[in-house]
């Protein structure tokens, strides 16, 4: 887990405790609580996991185990516009890697990182279920199909890059 201790805002912590209560502090609802928690904080640093563990009366290790198991949970903060590049087979053979390289080159960050201004982050996904549109990129909720390396700049321009 991270070495730097993060100070959580008290209002957010109270909000999280309220979420836990709304699920009756039931340990069986851990995954649902974590989804809500990520909605509040944007990510799930160790400090958030400790709060959840305390409220649901679970060992922190158990919470950590679930957080690291599912790819939807992240312990790194994501950008305002999270960019996900599909690396499923259909996308991969149609050149997803070149598209990824172009995003990395233009934004000057690696997979799993965010830009310094916190605006963009890059991650890879395994198949979004839109193989007919390969290669596929999603930014936030928006899906871009048949993306080519040349088209990357235009896509980023939509987000005032």
């Amino acid at each position: 887990m991270s070495h730097i201790k993060i100070q959580l805002k008290e209002a957010q912590v109270n909000q999280l405790k309220e979420v836990c209560r709304s699920f009756d502090n039931d340990p069986g609802e851990l995954i649902n609580v974590l989804h809500k928690a990520q909605g509040i904080f944007g990510y799930l640093p160790a400090e958030v996991q400790e709060v959840v563990a305390r409220e649901l009366q679970l060992p922190v290790a158990k919470v950590y185990g679930v957080v690291t198991f599912y790819s939807f949970f992240t312990m790194q903060p994501k950008g305002l516009h999270p960019i996900s590049i599909c690396m499923g087979t259909a996308c991969y053979v149609r050149g997803a890697e070149k598209v990824l390289d172009e995003f990395r080159r233009i934004l000057n960050i690696n997979v799993g990182e965010s830009t310094a201004d916190g605006k963009f982050s890059i991650s890879c996904l395994r198949c979004v279920g839109a193989c007919g549109l390969a290669p596929v990129v999603t930014i936030g909720e928006k899906v871009y199909g048949r993306v080519s390396p040349d088209g990357v700049k235009d896509i980023l321009r939509e987000y005032e890059f």
């Binding site: 499923g88 087979t89 259909a90 395994r126 198949c127 279920g129 839109a130 193989c131 007919g132």
Partner: peptide
């Protein structure tokens, strides 16, 4: 939980 790469019928 349709996760098999190349499958999108259930969606």
């Amino acid at each position: 939980d349709e996760g098999e790469p190349g499958t999108f019928k259930d969606r």
